[in-house]
Amino acid sequence: MDRLEFEKPSRSRFTTTTTTTTQTHRVVAYWYFYCAALVFAIVAVGGVTRLTESGLSITEWNLITGMKPPRTDEEWNVEFEKYKLFPEYKLLNHNITLNEFKFIFYMEWGHRMLGRFIGLSFILPGLYFASRGMMSPSIRNRSLFVAVLIGCQGVLGWYMVKSGLKQELMEAKSFHGVSQYWLAAHLGSAFIIYSIMLLTGFEILRTSSKNAVALSEQISTLLRVPGFKTFSRATHQIATLVLLTAFSGAFVAGLDAGLVYNEFPFMGEGLMPSDMWAHSDPTVMEKPVPLWRNMLENASAVQFNHRFLAMTTSTAVVGLWFASRRFTLPASSRLAVNALLGVTALQVSLGISTLLYLVPVPLAAAHQSGSLLLLSTSLWLLHTLRRLPVKI
């Protein structure tokens, strides 16, 4: 198929939108990227914390006093006795030693401390930049919104932990830890915060670039090419698919659904598991649940959902890559679309390997981090194709 060309931008053919509001300093972009990197790190640490079943080792939430870990044998024994009161110890870890408890305690403590560090790393510099007039009004307001989201993220994390400490869980036939609903909300909000941070950093750098006008005109010209608007919209849809696939992965983690049907591409005798609707079947369950709950609480259905979304996303990425060959994209967009294809192949490989090898911690942790890397690449691509206002 012939490559579609576009003309060299001409200022006389259209007018680039400009604004005269306070321009955000470029250092704010680097600060956003730094905070995004910290969020990436805490997602990775959180994944390992979940995989090592460390998340319920600290049974209280103390914002200030919780920053100090136990130091003496007496303090460690006190924390260990608290842990023994809850279902995870009674149902899963009743043979755990004090030294083993120390390991999972430090995993969760490190996760919480990193969360506090992120909050301070965002709020304190943000206040400084705002007070110095280094942010435009829109970026200042967005930063306030992100700060609120970070606070809400901490609250979601504690409610997630509380969901795994309920004594009613003692009556369950199996114990998976925290509620998959709270886990999905906690992980999903982290992905949203990360996305806002990354896109904001990209936006600040691009609108303050010396080539901002030329870049804006180049995208404006591309938008006149037949089919390019559809291609550009598709990049947003793929980023949404990546986010939904990662969100479904939280349900897989919450129900330990990766430990059923450890084969690919089949699930038992077919592509769809035979017990796909088991929780809604009155012949199987004494108290069948609605179909929507079956889709979110049946481990087999949850794994199928994740597989389906993953295959849909990867197919869409391949289709987008082939569609991109029709256009003469800017160099950054061409690099981004090629990177997206490569990262997708890596993520699919990690996902299948994690499944086939019964969810080993290194592979599973790499797969979770890979989802955030895939989201990063998809956001980078859609950003390179955005037509942003030029600030003067």
Rank of each mutant, 00 (worst) to 15 (best):
V161L: 05
M160I: 06
I139W: 09
L222F: 07
A364S: 12
M170E: 13
I352Y: 01
F122A: 08
E217R: 15
H94M: 11
Q303T: 01
Q180C: 07
K210V: 10
A37R: 09
S314A: 14
T49A: 08
M67N: 10
F103V: 15
V348K: 02
G47C: 04
T207I: 14
L374M: 11
L320M: 08
Y32C: 14
L215D: 15
S353G: 09
E7W: 10
N211D: 15
A234W: 12
P360T: 07
F80C: 05
F105Q: 02
P360G: 07
S248H: 06
A316F: 04
L356T: 04
L356R: 08
G154H: 03
M1L: 15
V337E: 01
R325D: 00
S353M: 10
D256Q: 14
T384V: 03
T315N: 06
S280E: 04
E81V: 08
S138N: 14
E75C: 02
G319W: 09
T221G: 13
L372A: 10
K84P: 01
T344R: 03
N262V: 02
T207L: 06
S349L: 12
V318K: 03
A310F: 01
G157D: 00
F327E: 00
I118Q: 00
G319Q: 07
I352M: 01
F191Q: 10
F308K: 06
N294S: 13
S136A: 11
S10E: 13
W31Q: 08
N62C: 11
T283H: 15
T52R: 05
T24Y: 04
V337L: 06
L149T: 01
Y261Q: 06
L127H: 09
W109S: 00
S143Y: 05
T384L: 00
L358P: 04
I392M: 13
R142L: 15
S232Y: 09
Y30K: 12
F129T: 05
E263I: 07
A345I: 13
L4F: 09
F247K: 05
L215A: 13
P69M: 05
S216M: 09
T240D: 10
Q23H: 12
M276A: 11
T315A: 15
E5R: 14
V390Y: 04
S314L: 06
T20F: 12
L120M: 12
N62I: 07
E108R: 00
R386E: 11
P9N: 08
R26D: 13
K68V: 13
A331H: 13
G126V: 00
K102I: 02
R13M: 12
S216P: 03
V148S: 11
T354C: 07
V39A: 07
E108V: 01
A246P: 01
P9Y: 04
T18Q: 13
T230E: 14
P137T: 09
G177R: 00
K102N: 08
V252Y: 00
G164T: 03
Q167T: 14
V28Q: 02
F202T: 02
F251H: 01
